[in-house]
Design a protein around this nucleic acid. Sequence first.
RNA 1: GGCCCUAUCGUCUAACGGUUAGGACGGAGCCUUCUCAAGGCUUAAAUCAGGGUUCGAUUCCCUGUAGGGUCACCA
Length: 449
Amino acid sequence: MEKVRVRYPPSPTGYCHVGTARMAVVNYLFAKKHGGKIFFRSEDTDKERSKREYEEDIIEQLHWLGLGWDDFSRTTELVESHKTAMHKLVGEDKAYVSKEESKKNPGEFVEVVRLRNPGRSVTFTDVIRGDITFDTTELGDFVIGRAIDDPLYNFAVVYDDGTQGITHVIRGEDHISNTPRQILIQEALGFPRPVYAHYPLHLGADKSKLSKRTGDVAVRSYREKGFLSPALLNYIAILGWTPPSGKEILSLDEMVAEFELENLHKSGAVFDMEKLRWYNRHYLSEMSVEDFNAHALTVLRAAITARNLSWNDAGEKILSLIREKISVWGDISDLVAEGEFDFAFSAPVLDPAKIPGKGDDAAAGAKHLHHVRALLEKLSEADFRDSERVKAALWDYATEAGRGSVLWPLRYSLSGREKSPDPFLIASVIGKSSTIERVEIALNTLQSS
RNA sequence: GGCCCUAUCGUCUAACGGUUAGGACGGAGCCUUCUCAAGGCUUAAAUCAGGGUUCGAUUCCCUGUAGGGUCACCA
């Protein structure tokens, strides 16, 4: 096979989209698998909608995902050669300038360029779907330029693909009906036909093309929510492709090794946020404790501050707890916002009715009061260095007295929450004096109620 | 609507024309446990319909149905 050359042709008319990332992943895997080159071409022919800011975002997010390229260009910077080519086409009478009323601005007359459509049927072979035939007569003499010096996308891509020697055009199936048009232009221009592969689109929950309406599509928003790039990359790659090994968790290199266009699926796949979260959880679990803690600490600190709680060293002690609770970094903020970790930063406000423990009525209060008193004594002698030691100091008593009736009131006294980490952990996190203080508050609350 | 594409559990998917139709996410249940989470185990759940071809269709063909894509002086 000739040397593989593929392209990323995003149009910078919006932030980097999940679809843009998928286009890049598929092309990247194919190019790397075959030792080919990747041409990043910013398709900015639509001057009104294209923005440098979007282009920068696409570059940034693709890099974040680890998807590089070998060459970079912008369509508008290539426009001189497009003009020359278009003039040549008109000179050869393969295209012509047509003066007509502007569709965009009715009343105004413009000179658009139309391709002379030979009007025959075009068949191309799609690597994923096999032969596809179109009758191009219904296309008519379609427009390839807004003006002789202002080429449209279809003309520009075909020309650039031709001059850059692109061998494989790998793109979403939304481009499949564009293909016959492009083939006609390509033939008029005298370029060889590349190999085409149209993969299915990622779908929203309602099974329509993934869009802002159906969910988050901006790569940056996933990044902001705290998804890890290998997780997003892995999910985007695997959704619509099954590697021969059947593995679901793969690094970029492993994907390259297993990739073949033939294994791309034919039907669209729904983008499932839950599965993405599962992937992220997996990659989070592979992080070293140091790396995890360093990042979690930053997020936690910001979230605690945002909740107007004062930061203290208990924060570092709940990191292990956070590790088993989150799927994405952003979950930390959500958990904090829900008050999940308030116990570490401030004493809880207690509801006396809840202290006795679930399932018990107020009459049982005296019994629990007794337990809590006994605990106070044990607590004052306990070693608070870690939760295991706190547990050791209380476990026998709790077992003897009935764990539920001892541990529930204790946990509630310390956390003020019906659902919380275990009381030993909370005690070790907040320390001996706070623990005793909180139990005493609970005692007083119970006595005065 | 025209043209094009597609069709296996709720979702992502596997299965030389012969399997008890397998796996993953999510769900349910159980274990662990003072609660929540995590973890372990178990489990429910699918071949769109109708015709062919065949000894035998998830698999091949046709029709229907459903879904999607596309019909720009956007890309």
